[in-house]
Design a protein around this nucleic acid. Sequence first.
DNA 1: GGTCAATAGTTGTTCTCTCAAGTATTTCTG
DNA 2: CAGAAATACTTGAGAGAACAACTATTGACC
Lengths: 174, 174
Amino acid sequence: MSDTSALGTERTISQGSSGAAKADPLGTCSPHHEAWRSLARTHAAVSGRLQEALAQAELPPLAWFEMLAAIAASDEERMKMGELAEALVITRGGLTKLVDRLVKAGLIERTFCETDRRVSYATLLPAGAELLEEMVPVVSAELELAFAARLSEHQADDLRVTLDALRGTACNGD
Amino acid sequence: MSDTSALGTERTISQGSSGAAKADPLGTCSPHHEAWRSLARTHAAVSGRLQEALAQAELPPLAWFEMLAAIAASDEERMKMGELAEALVITRGGLTKLVDRLVKAGLIERTFCETDRRVSYATLLPAGAELLEEMVPVVSAELELAFAARLSEHQADDLRVTLDALRGTACNGD
DNA sequence: GGTCAATAGTTGTTCTCTCAAGTATTTCTG
DNA sequence: CAGAAATACTTGAGAGAACAACTATTGACC
């Protein structure tokens, strides 16, 4: 890939003498912008890597894995639609259709709440748990490749902490 | 949102006594999985925040900003389609259509290479530069809110370095 | 108890991306 | 120089997700 990491951090040169030299007049090279760009690009890169690995193994897409993993990790192997939408960071409308697909594939099932008839659960079925067990090693292997090869365990943990701090849980409407 | 950070790292309890206690039988709670989840969720959160801010200011979507910023940051205020696709981490097919939209909006222009007639450039137009100048403060402000409020400048820089290392530039086909 | 707002999910539309195939241009080979 | 392979980009079809509008259920207030 093109090496775009030569940044103008030390550029204190005059901005009008060399013609083509950009001196970041807009401020898109601030540390925060840089960090955000790295975040976006790294996410895209890793995500693409995972999707590719799953596709090569003839397994369903990453979103299915995230969903199955989220449900499997919950206490009762079932999750409310709303919680699931938050966990996967997609809209509720999007979730409804994603769940539809998994239901159609026989991996999960819709169950309902006795006490509040508005809520419905996505409940893991045996077939879903089985598929998840097939997907986990593929994802783990790819993650090892991406993480373990380049980051120490301490770094990985540190990264997680920083990212969690960055995400915060701010719900400032505006 | 729901506090899912209570992890089973220290869980050495017997896994069969308490019924509903999950002991991560699949390994989806390894440091690398955790870090990846944080990466995905933080990216989605920040990205959503930026998009929302832009929408509220009645400005074009984030993808347009990324594109304009990438072109503006290049030496000649123009970029080859291929380079642009890599910078934005989307496929070339996707880029063609994204460029189409920006061209239709009068923000950029397609120019061609004299020496190699296969390559075409996306070239910034005055209107695009102007719009970019409107968008930068909105994005910067939102980024400040997300980053500066929660991360020290050193942390932000550290984050960038770690993410860049993680992304690597490995092109291992398979 | 009846009405109104709030909450939980679903549906239809639209947009954008990916994938696979196609065109045009250049480079390599004989 | 002709033909094959490689490169750069475009096109068309399909899937996935966001957005807004909708239904159903619950809880609050009079």
